[in-house]
Design a binder for these strands. Structure first.
Lengths: 199, 199
DNA sequence: AAAAAATAGTGACAAATGTAACTACTAATA
DNA sequence: TATTAGTAGTTACATTTGTCACTATTTTTT
């Protein structure tokens, strides 16, 4: 299995190369420092699978993933990152990634992930999966504020929220103002999107 | 690996038993016809992994998954279904399932999934993954309406939408009214939620 | 004990949103 | 060819939403 490792941190590409090349199945055919280099490499070399960082200079991993998948749909791509928010998972999957794993996952898991993806099954790491399912409270917000966020994210109007919580509509509006300011959002719709799409 | 198969359709449990027992690694220790039977079985027998249908009489798979995970967190559960909408995936993962596969997946993939989950990596089937990432156009809506839905789901205001599409704000408002009526929603926030959470 | 944070409220106001009732043009379809 | 569907528009109106400026309790923290 010809593997290309893409990460702007040489420490990461180097250590991954060493660890993975222990396995006979894996053949590290190249390393790239950003998305553009990865695309270049795929054009010139045979690659089966790419381990790709998300945050990189020049061209980020998600854009590179899109481009590579378009030109070479046969190449499997596993996103590799320390950030594991919902947004990145979602975007990566939309960009055509077959999986997602954390640099902090142990090596046995990483190897298993690579083999499984190569076998044609998409996979996400346990930690990444957690970010799908973990509860959506924001530590920047108070309990009451989080409660209201959840109601907004379920499509309730201010009047409905006030009735459900037995408080005045004015209070609901004030609280939402504070929430929006804290989260740097503009309106309840962006808040609902933030709730479901991000984190 | 001691496997319990839970499905109200005997055809499914039988055929899965036969196919999986070919593999020496797998030992089918039981079959159950609903969630309650599954819980009973786990109380009386040692089980490593459960293949669980979602839609079942008496007690559905998601509820059973929750209950079993609470009492026996060590048991891995893979949801098994013909329906693969986002809502079910999401609910299953929240209920503690480690994976999700379609009855229509080929047997090799199903075996791989079971082995991978047993190894501690959560996995979802390729088809299920598709439902995460597939494009979100609604066939009830016209192309233009879908375009506007997407912009709303990205948090844009009516003014921003009108500027982006070079049409008047009034037209945007009218179009949104039609969209809301078609989808039986009340406001743009519910529309954004519908876009991201459903389908 | 004082200060800060969380909760709840009011009134006024501006801006955004959604609805209704129409018109008008074009492209596709029966 | 007549009709329908899709797109785009206007005007008017009602409602909802969000902001601002304050007040007031209660709870928590320093």
């Amino acid at each position: 299995m010809k593997i290309l490792i893409v990460d702007d941190d040489d420490m990461v590409t180097e250590s991954l190369s060493i660890i993975l090349s222990v396995e006979n199945e894996f053949e590290i055919v190249g390393q790239a420092g950003n998305g553009l280099e990865a695309i270049e490499f795929c054009r010139k070399n045979a690659v089966d699978l790419i381990l790709m960082d998300i945050q990189m200079p020049v061209l980020d991993g998600i854009s590179a993933c899109k481009a590579i998948k378009k030109s070479y749909p046969g190449i499997k791509i596993i996103m590799l990152t320390t950030f594991h928010d919902y947004k990145n998972i979602h975007q990566s999957l939309q960009a055509g990634a077959s999986g997602y794993l954390l640099k902090s996952d142990d090596f046995e898991k990483q190897k298993m992930t690579i083999k499984t993806v190569y076998a044609g099954l998409p996979i996400i790491s346990e930690e990444a999966l957690k970010s799908f399912t973990e509860n959506k409270t924001d530590e920047k917000l108070t309990p009451r504020e989080n409660e209201i966020v959840e109601l907004i994210a379920n499509g309730l109007s201010n009047k409905e929220i006030s009735q459900k919580l037995f408080i005045s509509e004015g209070t609901v509006r004030n609280t939402i103002s504070i929430i929006l300011e804290k989260l740097e959002l503009r309106d309840r719709t962006q808040l609902a999107i933030y709730y479901w799409q991000k984190r």
